[in-house]
C-alpha cells in the first residue's frame, strides 16, 4: 500500500477487490499451513530417528541379556560362562561414578561461574581458557588414559593403580563437557536477574549463589548427565591406568584395585565362547539401569528448578 494520501483514501490493488483478495489470502494461508505442517513433520522425524535407534538397540540387548542379569549381578568373574558374573565391575562402576560426580560438579560449575560471572572477556588469558576447554572436549579418551598413567598413577601424584586414580582421570575427561554446558546454562539466565539482585545490594557472590545458579540448575544438570553418561561407558583410559579385567572382590576403599563394567563387557564380547556374549548383553542392561538411576536423579533436579522466563 502506498503512503497515506489523506483521510480514508480509496483502497488500491488487491484491497479494492475483496472477493479476489479473500481467495489469494486464503491460498497463502493454506500454503503457510502446509509449510508449517511439513516443518513440524520433519522435526518429528528427526526426533524419531534417535528414539527408534534406541528402541532397536535395547530390544536386541534385552532379548539376549535379560535372562542373565541375575547371574551378572550376583557372581564374580570366572573363566566358565556358567559361573561368571560382574559384581566387582558393577561396584567398581558405581564407586567411580559417585567419585566423578563429587569431583566434577563443584569444580566444573566453579570454573563456569568464574568464566561467565567474573572473568573479563576482553583479556586474552580468559579467551585462551575458553578455547582450551573446548579443545579438551575433543581429546580422545585414551589420551586421558596416558595422562592419568603418567601423572596420577605414577609420577607427580603417584596414587598407584587405584580407584581414586581412575576416578580422577575420568573426572578430567568429563570436566570440559560439564564446564561448557554449565556456561551455556549461566549465559541463558537473563541479565535483568543479576541487575536486580545487585541493585538490591547483594554482593556478586550472593547474586551468583542465590539467583543465578538456581536458575541455571537445569542446564547444569544436563551437562552433568551428558558427562557422567560418557564416563560410565569408557573402557580404554581405564585399561591403560590399570583397571583390571579379572577382579574377584568389590572395591574396598579409594586405594583398592578395581574394574569397571565397560571393561568387563568388552572383555566378554572378545571371548570365543558364545555364552559370554549373552552375559555381555546382561552386563549392558545392568549398566543402563545404573545410568538411568543417575539420570533420573538429575532429571528430577532439572524439572524441579526449570523456569521459563
Amino acid at each position: 500500500m502506498s503512503d497515506l494520501a489523506g483521510p480514508n483514501p480509496a483502497p488500491e490493488g488487491l484491497y479494492a477487490q475483496p472477493a479476489r483478495a479473500a481467495e489469494v489470502l486464503g491460498r497463502q494461508r493454506l500454503r503457510e499451513r502446509a509449510k508449517n505442517a511439513l516443518f513440524r513433520g520433519l522435526l518429528l522425524f528427526s526426533l524419531l530417528l534417535g528414539v527408534v535407534a534406541l528402541v532397536v538397540l535395547l530390544a536386541d540387548v534385552l532379548d539376549r541379556g535379560l535372562g542373565h542379569v541375575w547371574q551378572v549381578v550376583t557372581s564374580f568373574p570366572s573363566g566358565l560362562p556358567a559361573r561368571a558374573g560382574a559384581q566387582s565391575a558393577i561396584m567398581g562402576t558405581i564407586w567411580l561414578m559417585a567419585l566423578v560426580a563429587l569431583f566434577t560438579i563443584p569444580v566444573g560449575v566453579g570454573a563456569a561461574v568464574y568464566l561467565e560471572e567474573y572473568a573479563d572477556r576482553s583479556r586474552r588469558w580468559n579467551r585462551l581458557i575458553e578455547v582450551n576447554i573446548q579443545n579438551l572436549a575433543a581429546v580422545p579418551s585414551i589420551v586421558y588414559g596416558i595422562l592419568g598413567l603418567g601423572f596420577l598413577v605414577r609420577g607427580f601424584v603417584g596414587l598407584g593403580q587405584t580407584l581414586l586414580a581412575g576416578a580422577l582421570t575420568l573426572s578430567l575427561l568429563v570436566l570440559p563437557t560439564v564446564i561448557i554446558a554449565s556456561r551455556e546454562a549461566l549465559r541463558s539466565v537473563p541479565d535483568s536477574i543479576r541487575h536486580g539482585s545487585l541493585a538490591l545490594g547483594a554482593t556478586p557472590w550472593q547474586t551468583t549463589w542465590r539467583q543465578v545458579l538456581p536458575a541455571a540448575i537445569p542446564g547444569i544438570a544436563t551437562g552433568t548427565i551428558l558427562g557422567l553418561s560418557r564416563a560410565i561407558g569408557e573402557a580404554a583410559p581405564l585399561i591403560l591406568l590399570g583397571a583390571l579385567t579379572f577382579v574377584t572382590f568389590n572395591p574396598e576403599g579409594l586405594n583398592s584395585a578395581f574394574t569397571a563394567l565397560p571393561i568387563q563387557i568388552f572383555n566378554w564380547i572378545s571371548r570365543p565362547q558364545d555364552e559370554f556374549k549373552l552375559l555381555a548383553a546382561g552386563a549392558i542392561l545392568v549398566l543402563l539401569v545404573i545410568l538411568l538411576s543417575m539420570n533420573a536423579f538429575a532429571i528430577w533436579m532439572r524439572s524441579r528448578y526449570q523456569k521459563r522466563w
Binding site: 585399561i239 590399570g242 583397571a243 583390571l244 579385567t245 579379572f246 584395585a257
Partner: peptide
C-alpha cells in the same frame, strides 16, 4: 589370597 589379572 587376592589374585588380579590385567590386560595391558
Amino acid at each position: 589370597v587376592r589374585v588380579t589379572v590385567g590386560t595391558s
